[in-house]
């Protein structure tokens, strides 16, 4: 677990729905291609509701 980094999933309601601020979920995980794929899947199908929400995935550089 030597490469744990902080990722931030920023979730926004789709256009036309009220939510100017959105919300963010912080995830600490080992930075591997497999984990990034899992986080993408988790973000799109669970952390964000694909019916009404979109998300952006950010790696917070320098913050482990």
């Amino acid at each position: 677990m030597g490469n744990v980094r902080r990722f931030e999933v920023c979730i926004f309601l789709k256009e036309g729905l009220l939510d100017p601020q959105g919300r963010a979920v912080r995830i600490f995980m080992e930075d591997t291609p497999e984990n990034r794929e899992k986080l993408q899947e988790l973000s799109g199908n669970f952390l964000a509701n694909p019916v009404i929400e979109t998300f952006e995935l950010h790696l917070r550089e320098g913050e482990g």
């Binding site: 309601l13 009220l18 939510d19 509701n49 019916v51 009404i52």
Partner: peptide, 17 residues
């Protein structure tokens, strides 16, 4: 039921907040 996709659409915060 909407979260489980057994019904369409979604329920989100009231427009009044």
């Amino acid at each position: 039921l909407t979260e489980a996709h057994l019904l369409p659409g979604a329920l989100t915060w009231n427009h009044t907040g």
